[in-house]
Nucleic acid binder design. Sequence first.
DNA 1: CTTTGTATGAGTGTATCCACTATTACAAAG
DNA 2: CTTTGTAATAGTGGATACACTCATACAAAG
Lengths: 235, 235
Amino acid sequence: MSFASKGMAATAQDEAYRAILQDIRSGRYQPGERLIPETIARELAMSRMPVREAFQRLANEGLVLIRPNRGCIVSGLTIEEIYELFEIRSVLEGLAVRLAMPRFDAAALAELDDHVARMHRAGAAGGADWLSRHQEFHAYICGFSRHPKLIAQIAALHIAVEPYMRVWLHHVAQPAYATERQDEVVEAIRTGDAEHAEAVMRDHVLRTAPRLAEFLRKRGQAVGASSALPASTQP
Amino acid sequence: MSFASKGMAATAQDEAYRAILQDIRSGRYQPGERLIPETIARELAMSRMPVREAFQRLANEGLVLIRPNRGCIVSGLTIEEIYELFEIRSVLEGLAVRLAMPRFDAAALAELDDHVARMHRAGAAGGADWLSRHQEFHAYICGFSRHPKLIAQIAALHIAVEPYMRVWLHHVAQPAYATERQDEVVEAIRTGDAEHAEAVMRDHVLRTAPRLAEFLRKRGQAVGASSALPASTQP
DNA sequence: CTTTGTATGAGTGTATCCACTATTACAAAG
DNA sequence: CTTTGTAATAGTGGATACACTCATACAAAG
C-alpha cells in the first residue's frame, strides 16, 4: 500500500495523508520536525481531525512518531536503522523476484530493458528523478510476484529511506554504479533461475546501504527518534 | 509490533486498540464482521473518536479493512493470502536468526531449550496455549537480532494469522510435528552456522502453511475482503 | 408477482468545543 | 550568575454535535 495509484477516495483524511506523505518524502518536513495539526489543517482547509487520523496512518508506517501528549514529529532514522531497513528490503525483494520468476515472459523482459534504459537516461541527466525511475524499476519487478502485501511492504521500505536517498543523490548526482548493477538483476532474471535471481537481487539491494551510510555519517545527518514501522505505533 | 509488552500508555485510544486487537486475535470478532464504533465505544466507556483512531492503526496492520463511508470490517484472509504471509514471515525470520547468530551464548541456548520444553508440555496438555508458547519461542529467537523493526514486522505477521491458527489448533489439538521441528531450529542455531540456521528457519516457518491451508480448505473457511498489511506500512 | 422509485433510519466523516498536560518564560531565592 | 519555583500559553486527547452517505424497507406502478 502506498504510493502507487490508489482508487481515489476523495475523503479529507486521505487528502491529508497524501499531502503530508508527499511533504515527508520530498524533504519539506525534515526528520525531527514537529507537525502541528492546527497548522496543517489550516493549510489544507480542513479541521484538525482528519489530519490527526492521517498522523496515525503515518505513524503505523513508521514515517512519523507520536508520543502521547507530546505531539507528532517526523521520525528520523539512525544509520543503524537505515541498515536494518535495507536488510529487510533485501530479503523481501529477493523473495519477490523468486516468486515472480515464473511470470516473466518475453514482453516483460523487453519492458524491463526499457526501464533500465530510462534509468540510464535519468542517471545521466541528473540524480533528481533517477530515484523515481529506480523505484519504478523495482516496483515493476516486484509487481510480477502478484503478492499485494509483499509489494506494499517493499514500497513502504522504499519510502522510509527516500528522504535520505534524496539528499544523498542531490549531492553525488551520479548513481551510475547502481545502474550498472541493475543490468545484473535483469540478466539474472533472464537466466530463469529463481534461486540465482533471488541472490542477485539481495546483493543488489544491500549494495546501496554502505554507500548511503558513509555519506550520512560524514554529513553527521541522521538523527531523530526511531519509529515503529508497520507494525504499530507509539513506543 | 504489537502484543509484547508495551510501555503502558494509558491513553484511551491505546486502550481501544488493545481491546479490539485482543478480540480479533481471540476470534471474538470473526473475519468479515462489521465493527461499529458506537457499540465498541459504549462497551469501553469512551467516545467514538479513540475507537476510530484505533481502527486506523488496525487497518494499517492489515487486521481490519476500512472502506470509505462503509465502515470497518475484520479482514479475512484467503488461503492464497495466508500462504503469502507465511512466505514473507519465512524470509523475515530467516533474516532474524541470521542476524541474531553472533549473539547466542550458552545462557541463551539453555533458555531456548527451556522454551522448547515448555512447548512440549503445552502441546501435550492441549493446543490452546501451545500457540502462545510457540509465538514466544519465535519472539525469543528474533529478539536476539536486536532489530526492532524486523521484530515488529514478524510479530505483526504472527498476529495476522493467529485467528486461523487458533481454530486449526482447536480442532487438531496436536501440533506435535511442529514441536519436533522446533528442535531442528535450536540444533541449527547450536551449530553456529548463520546461513544454515537461516535456511532451517525458513523451512520451519513454511512447513506450517500447507497443513493450515489444507485444513481451512476442507472447512471452507477463509473468506472476507483482503487487507493492506503493514507495509505497513503505507498507503 | 416483479420491478422500480422513494423515504426513513443507521452509520460514517468532519467540525467545533472543552479539559488537561506539557513546555516555556519569567521571577524570586540562593 | 545559577538554580528553583511558578504562572502563562500552546497544544493534545477526547467528547459532542452536525451534515451527508449508504442501505434497507416499503409502496406504487408495470
